[in-house]
Simulated scan of single mutants.
Amino acid sequence: MMFPHFILTIRCRDRAGIVAAVATALADSQAFITESSHFGDPETELFFMRTVFRPTGALVSTLEDFRIVLEPVAKRLGMELSLHPAERRTKVLLAVSKHGHCLNHLLHQWHSGELPIDVVGVVSNHEDMRRLVDWYGLPYHYLPMADGKQAQEARFRDAIASSGAELTVLARYMQVLSDEMCRHLEGRCINIHHSFLPSFKGAKPYHQAYARGVKVVGATAHYVTSDLDEGPIIEQETQRVTHALEADTFVRMGKDIENVVLARAVRWHAEHRVMLNGTRTVVFQ
Score class of each variant (00 low, 15 high):
residue 243 H to G: 02
residue 246 E to F: 07
residue 69 V to D: 12
residue 116 P to Q: 06
residue 174 M to E: 10
residue 43 E to M: 06
residue 111 H to D: 14
residue 38 H to Y: 10
residue 261 V to L: 04
residue 18 I to Y: 02
residue 201 K to T: 13
residue 18 I to C: 08
residue 283 V to Q: 01
residue 8 L to Q: 03
residue 173 Y to D: 05
residue 164 G to A: 07
residue 128 D to T: 11
residue 235 E to A: 13
residue 227 D to S: 03
residue 30 Q to F: 13
residue 197 L to W: 00
residue 61 S to A: 14
residue 65 D to N: 14
residue 213 G to S: 05
residue 129 M to P: 03
residue 269 H to L: 06
residue 240 R to L: 11
residue 245 L to G: 00
residue 197 L to P: 00
residue 83 L to K: 04
residue 182 C to W: 02
residue 267 R to E: 11
residue 154 A to I: 10
residue 206 Y to C: 10
residue 63 L to D: 07
residue 59 L to G: 15
residue 168 T to D: 02
residue 221 A to K: 07
residue 59 L to Q: 13
residue 80 E to I: 09
residue 197 L to N: 01
residue 271 E to I: 04
residue 92 V to Y: 00
residue 240 R to Y: 11
residue 168 T to A: 15
residue 196 F to T: 01
residue 258 E to D: 03
residue 1 M to Y: 12
residue 200 F to W: 08
residue 110 W to I: 08
residue 195 S to D: 02
residue 237 E to R: 13
residue 190 I to D: 01
residue 1 M to I: 12
residue 277 N to L: 04
residue 10 I to D: 02
residue 72 P to V: 10
residue 241 V to I: 11
residue 194 H to M: 05
residue 60 V to N: 13
residue 127 E to G: 06
residue 15 R to A: 14
residue 167 L to N: 05
residue 101 H to K: 05
residue 246 E to P: 03
residue 198 P to T: 08
residue 233 I to Q: 06
residue 88 R to H: 10
residue 230 E to P: 00
residue 15 R to D: 04
residue 105 H to D: 15
residue 190 I to W: 04
residue 99 H to T: 15
residue 177 L to Y: 02
residue 95 A to H: 00
residue 171 A to T: 03
residue 113 G to E: 10
residue 75 K to S: 14
residue 11 R to W: 00
residue 60 V to F: 13
residue 84 H to I: 08
residue 116 P to C: 09
residue 199 S to F: 10
residue 89 R to D: 02
residue 198 P to A: 08
residue 262 L to A: 01
residue 90 T to W: 03
residue 81 L to N: 12
residue 185 L to Q: 05
residue 202 G to M: 11
residue 198 P to S: 08
residue 219 A to L: 08
residue 236 Q to F: 05
residue 173 Y to S: 06
residue 125 N to H: 05
residue 10 I to F: 01
residue 50 R to E: 07
residue 169 V to P: 01
residue 185 L to Y: 06
residue 124 S to N: 04
residue 114 E to P: 04
residue 47 F to H: 02
residue 38 H to E: 15
residue 155 R to G: 07
residue 267 R to F: 02
residue 92 V to W: 00
residue 247 A to M: 07
residue 257 I to M: 06
residue 246 E to H: 13
residue 216 V to T: 12
residue 253 M to G: 09
residue 187 G to W: 08
residue 214 V to G: 01
residue 2 M to N: 14
residue 210 Y to F: 15
residue 127 E to T: 13
residue 268 W to H: 12
residue 265 A to R: 03
residue 238 T to L: 15
residue 114 E to H: 10
residue 18 I to S: 05
residue 26 L to M: 11
residue 73 V to R: 04
residue 271 E to W: 03
residue 21 A to K: 13
residue 217 V to Y: 04
residue 233 I to Y: 04
residue 69 V to S: 11
residue 156 F to W: 13
residue 175 Q to S: 10
residue 202 G to S: 09
residue 226 S to I: 02
residue 172 R to D: 09
residue 13 R to P: 04
residue 207 H to E: 11
residue 142 Y to A: 08
residue 278 G to K: 05
residue 11 R to F: 00
residue 155 R to V: 08
residue 21 A to W: 09
residue 155 R to S: 14
